[in-house]
Amino acid sequence: MSMHLPSNKGRGRRAPMADINVTPLVDVMLVLLIIFMVTAPLLTAGVPVNLPESRAKPVDQDQKPVQISIDDKGQVFVDNELTADTALPAKLEEIAGRAPGPDGKPAAVFLRADQGLGYGKVMKVMGELNHAGLNRVSLITDASAKP
């Protein structure tokens, strides 16, 4: 007994191809991988900027924000009241515990720091703000910067 298998010899039409060529897909994926590998380190590196000066427009606020100022000696003032470094976390917890604004978010915080102040002191205050749950922090800059 023999079995008859259909062949393509007498027909003139080509059989459909059932294979998928994955080489172009692999090439595109490798190029995308290289692009992401090259650009990822650039996203973490910052550009040196002069933060104390800005031409940004003022932000509109519904409720009165909390003013936190750090002078050139490193003293912290909360709403123009001198606050010791040890009392700052408790003061910020008190501010965070107040009733939220009309949008349901905690009060906005305006942070003003002297230009000659060390970066570590500002980051310490911002860390305390974050720990207290005050995440709406705006850094105040001098708006008189020239283009």
Results as ranks from 00 to 15, higher is better:
residue 54 S to F: 04
residue 12 G to K: 05
residue 6 P to L: 09
residue 131 H to A: 12
residue 95 I to S: 07
residue 80 N to K: 14
residue 71 D to S: 14
residue 79 D to L: 10
residue 119 Y to M: 14
residue 30 L to I: 15
residue 125 V to E: 07
residue 125 V to L: 01
residue 135 N to A: 04
residue 74 G to Y: 01
residue 119 Y to C: 04
residue 111 L to S: 01
residue 93 E to G: 13
residue 28 V to C: 06
residue 137 V to E: 11
residue 85 D to V: 08
residue 112 R to F: 00
residue 60 D to T: 15
residue 64 K to G: 00
residue 61 Q to H: 12
residue 85 D to Q: 02
residue 131 H to Q: 13
residue 20 I to V: 13
residue 81 E to S: 12
residue 55 R to W: 00
residue 28 V to N: 02
residue 64 K to Y: 03
residue 140 I to N: 05
residue 36 F to I: 13
residue 107 A to M: 10
residue 30 L to F: 09
residue 31 V to R: 01
residue 129 L to I: 07
residue 124 K to M: 14
residue 81 E to R: 10
residue 23 T to G: 06
residue 25 L to M: 12
residue 62 D to T: 15
residue 98 R to F: 08
residue 12 G to M: 00
residue 113 A to F: 05
residue 82 L to C: 05
residue 35 I to V: 15
residue 49 V to H: 12
residue 54 S to W: 00
residue 22 V to K: 03
residue 116 G to K: 12
residue 137 V to Q: 11
residue 77 F to R: 07
residue 147 P to F: 00
residue 3 M to K: 11
residue 59 V to Q: 13
residue 70 I to L: 13
residue 118 G to W: 01
residue 8 N to Y: 03
residue 88 L to Q: 07
residue 41 P to W: 05
residue 14 R to F: 09
residue 61 Q to P: 05
residue 53 E to W: 10
residue 117 L to F: 02
residue 29 M to F: 05
residue 60 D to M: 06
residue 140 I to S: 08
residue 127 G to H: 06
residue 98 R to C: 02
residue 57 K to P: 02
residue 129 L to M: 11
residue 2 S to P: 10
residue 54 S to N: 10
residue 68 I to S: 02
residue 94 E to L: 02
